[in-house]
């Protein structure tokens, strides 16, 4: 198929985006273990950490474990960074959900450092996070993440991380 005859039907586009996101998230065992899921609006992702008793770190309050919050924000940052990097290839159809799920040449960015700012204790309920890639070069990236629970304007945690980007995969 050549040129710009007519745009693909919206359902085809949505299906490809959703399948690619599911494949990307499904690749990473830790994301499933922590229980993080993603919602997508266009290219915008929201990470969701559904509350479970196993996430508790302070049974007296009770409050989420700081390690669970940190892991959640790091997952949100890494998926956003990988997703935004793959977006052009997803949209062009050069990268299929099957490749994302199975191709071991697809490497994740590596975390160099990650700093979490715990603003208030995590309540025993669902948490949400959105990440923003502030800078993404060929080798390094800087990502900021905001986490909240009931109120979008009352963050319970935020984080900044630096990442080393993977070598571009060799495709044939």
């Amino acid at each position: 198929m050549t040129g710009r005859t007519r745009p693909e039907p919206m359902q085809v586009v949505k299906q490809r985006r959703d399948a690619t996101l599911a494949a990307l998230v499904g690749r990473v065992p830790f994301i499933g273990t922590l229980g993080v899921v993603f919602e997508r609006r266009g290219d915008e992702l929201t990470a969701i950490l559904p509350f479970r008793e196993t996430l508790i770190g302070n049974p007296v309050l009770p409050a989420l474990h700081g390690g669970a919050t940190a892991g959640f924000l790091e997952v949100a940052a890494l998926v956003e960074l990988t997703w935004s990097g793959l977006w052009p290839e997803i949209e062009s159809g050069r990268l299929t959900p099957e490749q994302v799920a199975q191709d071991n040449r697809l490497r994740m960015p590596k975390t160099v450092d990650f700093t979490v700012d715990f603003l208030r204790s995590g309540l025993p309920r669902d948490a949400y996070a959105r990440a923003r890639v502030n800078r993404s070069g060929r080798r390094y990236a800087s990502v900021h993440v905001e986490g909240w629970q009931d109120n979008r304007n009352r963050l319970f945690a935020q984080a900044t991380g630096h990442f080393v980007m993977p070598e571009p995969p060799v495709r044939d």
């Binding site: 690749r27 990473v28 065992p29 830790f30 994301i31 499933g32 273990t33 922590l34 770190g57 474990h65 700081g66 390690g67 669970a68 940190a70 892991g71 959640f72 790091e74 997952v75 890494l78 071991n104 040449r105 697809l106 490497r107 994740m108 975390t111 990650f114 979490v116």
Partner: peptide, 27 residues
């Protein structure tokens, strides 16, 4: 543990699991 892996291409555990170890140990 295999279910804590962050990159299936390498089998390396996710930073988030190491974060929890560090946070708990510091606490």
């Amino acid at each position: 543990r295999a279910d804590l892996v962050g990159d299936p291409a390498t089998g390396v555990m996710h930073g988030g699991a190491v974060s929890a170890l560090m946070d708990t140990t510091c606490g």
